[in-house]
Simulated scan of single mutants.
Amino acid sequence: MLHADIPQAAAWQETIKPGDIVAFRMPHKDPSAEPLKARPTLVLDIEDIDGTSMATLAYGTTRPPRGKTGHLVPVTDPDEIVAASLDRPTRFDPHRTVLVTLSHNGFVCRRSDGSAIIGTLSGTSAQRLARARKTRRAARRRHRSHLRRQDKRREVVVERRRGARLVSKEVIHA
């Protein structure tokens, strides 16, 4: 069901959105593992970073989950599996992600229309994605806030003097 390698058309890159399922060669945790294969991945976010469109993609697997599954986005309903163009129940892990440009060569496009988008989430799985995205945004805000507090604690004013006369003054982060 996944796609053969062909040049990518720009049309899908203009319509891609969170909740879409795309064919992508997701990197392995173990770099010495088998060659990368195209697999369904979930688009968590699309954002513009310094004028470049970037996608955050979540790893998809059909293996049963191990451990906690609270933040996973499972697609198990038969109608949702069809809408997502999946072969069988799949779960997406919003903690195992990559951030890539939309022109990344890891996207694998269909011969029929040149699109890497193979389906989209619906129903319960779309609701789980909305919760996972909200949780990710809150965690990112907390992290940025923590970094700002750390930076403020480490600000040091450096004054250079000649005798009693101030020559220069700057704030550095030490």
Results as ranks from 00 to 15, higher is better:
V22G: 00
R25Y: 07
R110D: 01
R137I: 06
T41M: 12
D50R: 05
A83T: 03
K134C: 06
L99D: 10
T124V: 15
V73I: 07
R149H: 11
M26W: 07
H95C: 13
P31H: 05
H3P: 02
V43D: 00
T124H: 09
V100K: 13
P27N: 12
V43A: 01
D93N: 14
H173P: 02
V171Q: 12
D20S: 05
A38L: 08
D5K: 04
L42A: 05
T124G: 06
D20W: 02
M1I: 11
A9R: 12
S145M: 12
R66H: 12
D30W: 13
L44A: 03
T41A: 09
G123Q: 03
S32L: 07
P89W: 01
R148W: 09
T135Q: 13
T120I: 01
P18V: 04
R110C: 00
D77I: 01
R128I: 03
A126F: 05
T97A: 07
R137W: 04
G70D: 13
I21M: 01
R142V: 08
G19V: 02
R165K: 13
E14Q: 12
M1S: 10
K134S: 12
S85P: 01
P7I: 10
T101F: 00
D151A: 12
R91D: 04
R66F: 08
R91N: 05
P27K: 14
V100A: 09
V100L: 14
R162S: 12
L102K: 02
V156T: 13
D50W: 04
T61G: 03
R161A: 11
K169C: 08
R140Q: 06
H104Y: 02
R91I: 07
S168C: 15
P94M: 01
I118N: 00
S125G: 06
L42F: 04
D87E: 11
H104G: 00
G60R: 00
A23K: 00
V22H: 00
V98L: 15
E155I: 05
L129H: 06
R144P: 03
D30G: 15
L42P: 01
E14W: 04
R154L: 15
T15N: 10
R142E: 15
S32E: 12
L147N: 07
P65F: 08
L99N: 15
I81R: 03
P65V: 05
L102W: 01
L36Q: 03
T56Q: 03
V157K: 12
S145E: 04
S145D: 05
I21T: 01
A23N: 06
P94D: 00
H173S: 04
R144I: 11
V82F: 10
R148H: 11
R110K: 04
P7F: 07
D5N: 05
T15P: 03
H28G: 13
D45M: 14
R148S: 09
M1W: 10
K17W: 02
V156C: 10
T41P: 06
N105M: 09
V43S: 01
A83D: 06
S115F: 03
A174V: 07
V157R: 10
V156N: 09
R153H: 08
W12Y: 13
S145R: 10
D30M: 08
I117L: 11
Q127S: 15
I118D: 00
R141S: 13
Y59W: 11
V43I: 05
R63W: 15
G51D: 14
D50Y: 09
G60Q: 00
R165W: 02
P64M: 09
H104W: 09
I46N: 04
